[in-house]
Design a binder for these strands. Structure first.
Length: 281
DNA sequence: ATATGCACCTGTGTGC
DNA sequence: TGCACACAGGTGCATA
């Protein structure tokens, strides 16, 4: 397979979107050696540490992987760099580092002259790096929903211990790493569970259904290369196609595809939750 | 432990 | 056309 040339990821930062980006990135930059790192100097979610440039410079990209919503660059000699896209982060890979685009806050240039640019208008993202193999930011993350250890039994046991409602449990990155607002809403619809249900009222059978729904919804989204609402993407970073398959998210006032009643929106901890009042109980 | 509110930011779409 | 407002896929903090 040929290496991708110029491309840009759409901004869309839940797990299936990050997974899509990581797959492209792996093909684009694995094996390349970093020659230089430039930063805008503006703070992201927190200020970008000087270590970011210092650690990357002169090292080789040994691997690119995903953990939760984080993009992890494994470096050789051993080190790591982390990219978190926040709400509006994108990565752009191209042959040349110049000219930097709007809202470019980080640019990693490789010895062949190509460049990985990080753009983030809202600056909710994160760039971090460190020595060695252990990554503090990832230590508190919960289970990977597509991993072996994630299933109905584990979900039911964890939920039984929680006093929260189901939706906010699903969004907690310390419980399940990677679910965000879209796929939490979609999984709850698929499992026919009301988002405001207290976790402890969820039965073992429902938890097992929910676990299957989460995996199903995420797998489908990854197959479709993620959900894209209004974002540009070029060549290999073409936009995702999953928006055609959304059942509730951003469908307030439209008909439920299952029962034909109207989809509703409510606020839960200051974020929109979309659900079907008939199908989900 | 959890719930709530807010803070961090810019861009886009809507209605007047 | 301009303006005000609501809203956006995430996280982290302070307060009760």
């Amino acid at each position: 397979m040929t290496r991708p040339g110029l491309w840009m990821s759409a901004a869309m930062p839940e797990m299936p979107e990050v997974e899509t980006i990581v797959r492209h990135l792996l093909r684009a930059i694995r094996g390349r050696t970093v020659s230089d790192v430039r930063l805008s100097g503006l703070p992201l979610r927190r200020p970008v540490d000087d270590a970011f440039a210092a650690v990357l410079r002169g090292r080789k990209i040994a691997a690119v992987r995903r953990r939760g919503k984080y993009i992890v660059l494994r470096l050789e000699p051993p080190g790591f760099a982390l990219i978190h896209l926040g709400m509006s982060g994108r990565v752009l890979y191209r042959e040349s580092a110049y000219p930097p685009g709007p809202h470019a806050h980080g640019a990693i240039t490789f010895t062949d002259g190509s460049c990985l640019e990080y753009r983030d208008p809202r600056r909710f993202g994160l760039l971090a790096a460190g020595e060695g193999r252990s990554i503090p930011e990832l230590r508190l993350l919960g289970r990977e929903p597509l991993g072996r250890s994630f299933g109905g039994d584990w979900l039911w046991r964890s939920m039984s211990r929680s006093r929260r409602d189901v939706k906010s449990f699903l969004l907690d990155q310390g419980e399940i790493a990677g679910l965000g607002n879209i796929y939490a809403c979609e999984a709850l619809f698929h499992a026919k569970i009301h988002p405001a249900r207290p976790c402890r009222t969820v039965t073992r059978q429902e938890a097992s259904r929910l676990a299957r729904s989460i995996r199903k919804v995420l797998r489908a989204a990854i197959r479709n290369r993620g959900t894209t609402f209004s974002d540009f993407a070029a060549s290999d970073g073409r936009p995702g196609g999953n928006q055609r398959f959304l059942r509730v998210f951003q469908r307030e006032g439209r008909r439920c595809r299952r029962c034909r009643c109207l989809i509703r929106r409510m606020r839960q901890s200051n974020r929109s939750t979309y659900y079907c009042p008939v199908c989900q109980s």
